[in-house]
Design a protein around this nucleic acid. Structure first.
Lengths: 184, 184
DNA sequence: AGCATAAGTGGTACTGTGTCTCACAAATGC
DNA sequence: GCATTTGTGAGACACAGTACCACTTATGCT
């Protein structure tokens, strides 16, 4: 049922754009009331990409599963394979949706906001690998690694959705994450 | 005049928090009408940190001024000195404001949104240093370098505003930007 | 079966942001 | 002295999101 409404939202937004789709439109199409809509989803944004909320946990689990000695940046890259599969497993439709998210400022902002929430999840694990105190707020390194990596993911997603015949996302992300790390 | 209203906004927001400060409150305190407020600022958010819009241009200029052969990541770090000075030149009040922005999700999101707009400005210069085609949307490297660097800036700002007696921002950013690049 | 309780749904009113249009006043130009 | 621009205020409006209440339909219990 929730999924049903979510599909309606995706359809309408893909047709008409995000700002141009009102909650009333969605309710009319899905034949529910506004009350019901907001009981299922806390906001219009969440209705659009609310499925992948738990991706943060999956990412953290993938990260903890990496060998203990692995360098933070490398471990991050490997952990992100879990996320990548998520994206690539889906169909063309998901890629169009992703492109829409990346290109719509308010949606991109919400997307990054969700990423920001992942920081708290991933931070202890990265700090451990850095030999840093996770509770030390004056040490920016753990957050920096996470924010930088997620920035690379965003860049990779943008490149991935730009063309109709994209390269494998894993390959794109490899290039993206090598760019900051590489001395030249 | 614009600056006067902006000061009112900062005062109220620092006292009561962002969400708790309505536009009507601001208008009442500044003794203007809602119409006037929205003629000066496109939104409540912009009224809060609308002064630093041109920081993107400054950053780009600093970047182009760096030696041509310098590696992208290094050039980025050096160019960011211009931004850092901006932050550190101001008083304690600015730091409190920055902390508020970093800790308020909706404001942090808007802050990142502004950063995202910088990407387009910085992209040609970074692409040039990478030997990449700036118009090639399928090459994620330039955007990745920028997004990663700005992610580090965010992490550095968070660390900078966490303590009342912070280290120099330049030093914090150095640590932050070494973390992803460093192999270990 | 009959009844009570709970869960899902819809309706309505409200707050707050942001847009738009119109009216009015003050400054500027001729 | 008159016209045009520019700044300001006032009101109506669209939309997101919240709160509260009424109604219906299961579900459980005796």
């Amino acid at each position: 049922m929730r999924a049903e409404v979510a599909t309606v939202v995706q359809n309408l937004v893909l047709e008409r754009g995000y700002e141009e789709t009102t909650v009333d439109d969605i309710c009319a199409t899905a034949e529910i009331s506004r009350s019901t809509f907001f009981r299922y989803f806390p906001s219009k944004e969440e209705a659009l990409f609310g499925e992948s909320i738990d991706a943060g946990e999956r990412l953290r689990d993938a990260l903890t599963a990496r060998p203990a000695g692995e360098a933070p940046w490398v471990a991050m890259r490997r952990a992100l394979d879990a996320l990548i599969e998520q994206y690539e497993a889906h169909d063309e439709r998901t890629r169009r949706l992703t492109r829409l998210i990346v290109n719509t400022p308010s949606l991109a902002a919400r997307h990054r906001e969700k990423n920001a929430r992942w920081q708290e999840l991933l931070r202890p694990e990265i700090a451990r690998r850095l030999g840093a105190d996770p509770a030390d707020d004056s040490d920016p390194r753990a957050n920096a690694v996470i924010a930088a990596a997620l920035g690379c993911v965003e860049a990779a997603l943008a490149a991935w959705t730009a063309n109709s015949q994209p390269q494998p996302l894993a390959k794109i992300l490899d290039r993206a994450m090598q760019a900051p790390a590489h001395p030249r």
